[in-house]
Design a protein around this nucleic acid. Structure first.
Length: 444
RNA sequence: GUGGAUGUAGUUCAGCGGUAGAGCACCAGAUUGUGGAUCUGGUAGUCGCGGGUUCAAAUCCCGUCAUCCACCCCA
């Protein structure tokens, strides 16, 4: 008979149902709005790139679990695994047409063939924002400020932004005589938040010996205040420098702009990615240590040098939208899924459907989102439909009302109805209900 | 990629060699123009997929796909 193809999807790839997609788009639009408030402009780049562009000249790091294949024209091709590397290529190619400093945001899917877990997929949405063309505390700080405002606008409670500086850390490693093992050291140090001081020390003892391990531990352990931490790492790194001064400036401005409750100078933050050269950022939900980093980034002054001789310093950060949503779901802070429709015109009789569309068109022209139920099903079924869709208002108009040109309006949440209203009156009532609702949302 | 756990009705799960079950959800009726209660009745499944052992497999074995957890890495 019929051989049905299984409607399956690949490991780590997912469909997004309306309830999820509505929430995702809401979060996305809040972020876009916030970026634009700060003068960031949108861009897009291709999903596919030449493999050499994504992997750099060596092309050897298969570590990155990149999706790679040969196209029908024999080209060596890969799918982007982040938005920062394609952005560096983008800047190298388009700098003459643009202006500096250039501030962009980019929300798009990226692909990594890694093993899956909750909040960790093979196809996921990243949201990057970067400032290119200046190497200054101003840009480093603006990224931090923007991160904080994004999470504020999303009404995410309890986010901590941890910052550190690669340059200071490298000075310290040089002084320690361990610069040659910096990769292993940074990996171990980065785990402090997860496994604790003892375990980190055990790892460090293996690579650098116990006395150096103790010095490293002293360096990465934050003091009780950011100022004290800065003083400590400045001393351990061999004194004041351009890097520690910049870190101090960023912290000072964070205080001034009211971020001091959220910004933590945390020298154990190093970031695994090797292209960072200056400040690095990492974000945590203290309630959800297992969910991993939701927003991280840093300064990369040499990234574009792979593709151009022009010096293009940059600083930026990336929000993992899918992981953010997984985290919000966990703490039940996701915005309630709404259909996006405000009013349902119920169908009492088929022959009145033309009238229903007139009503709906009037409501739409008054700026409200309306839809007509397309079938004269029993009312309970229509109410159930409205409830499932989260539609807050119903308009009911049977033959008696239609004959005298009136209708009833029902607040589907309180179940109160008002009868015998003209179209204009009904529209006014609907608007009042919606306004009350949106006030409640802001209040909560 | 490595190690482990789990896949049974729309959903949450029970059953763990002998005829596939429950709650919730869903559908119908009590209620032919106003849904959240109650009652009555009903639908509900290739037991993830493929192979093997057995008189007999949801149950045991192997493979495979997917999800979750840890590692790795990171968003």
């Amino acid at each position: 008979m019929s051989d049905i193809i299984q409607p399956r999807v690949l490991k780590g790839f997912r469909d997004s149902l309306p309830s999820n997609e509505i929430r995702r788009k809401h979060i996305q639009s809040v972020l876009e709005h916030t970026f634009e408030l700060y003068g960031f402009v949108p861009i897009d780049t291709p999903v596919l790139e030449y493999t050499e562009v994504l992997l750099g000249k060596g092309g050897g790091d298969t570590d990155k679990q990149i999706y790679r294949f040969t196209d029908n024209g024999g080209r060596d091709i890969a799918m982007r695994f982040d938005l920062t590397v394609p952005f560096a290529r983008f800047m190298a190619g388009h700098a003459p047409e643009l202006y500096l400093p250039f501030k962009r945001y980019h929300i798009a899917k990226v692909f990594r063939g890694e093993n899956t877990q909750r909040g960790r997929y093979r196809e996921f949405m990243q949201c990057d924002f970067d400032i290119v063309g200046v190497d200054s505390a101003a840009a480093d700080f603006e990224i931090l400020l923007l991160k904080a405002r994004c999470f504020e606008h999303l009404e995410v409670p309890d986010v901590r932004f941890h910052v550190a500086h690669r340059g200071v850390f490298n000075r310290f490693l040089n002084k320690l005589g361990a610069a040659d093992r910096s990769v292993e050291i940074m990996r171990a140090v980065d785990k402090r938040g997860k496994i604790g001081d003892e375990e980190v020390r055990n790892l460090l003892v293996e690579t650098v010996g116990s006395s150096a391990a103790d010095e490293l531990l002293a360096y990465i352990r934050p003091e009780t205040t950011n100022a004290a931490t800065l003083t400590a790492i400045t001393r351990l790194a061999g004194g004041d420098g351009e890097d520690t001064q910049r870190l101090g400036t960023v912290l000072e401005w964070s205080d001034k702009l009211g971020l001091s409750d959220r910004v933590v100078l945390d020298p154990s933050i190093t970031r695994g990615l090797d292209y960072y050269t200056g400040i690095v950022y990492e974000s945590f939900f203290p309630q959800l240590p297992q969910i991993g980093s939701v927003c991280s980034g840093g300064r990369y002054n040499d990234l574009a040098s792979l593709y151009t001789k022009q010096h293009l310093p940059g600083v930026g950060s990336s929000i993992g939208l899918d992981r953010l949503m997984a985290a919000l779901e966990e703490i039940e802070k996701l915005p309630h899924a709404r259909s996006g429709v405000d009013i349902l015109v119920l169908c009492m009789e088929e022959r009145l459907i033309g009238r229903y569309h007139e009503i709906a068109e009037y409501l739409r022209s008054a700026g409200m989102r309306a839809e007509v139920y397309p079938d004269a099903k029993k009312l309970s079924a229509q109410f159930a439909y409205a409830e499932k869709r989260g539609i807050p208002i119903g308009i009911i108009c049977g033959s008696i009302e239609a004959d005298s040109g009136v209708m009833n309006i029902k607040n589907l949440e309180t179940r109160e109805s008002e009868e015998q209203l003209s179209l204009e009156e009904a529209a006014g009532k609907a608007r009042a209900i919606l306004q009350r609702k949106s006030h409640q949302n802001y209040g909560a």
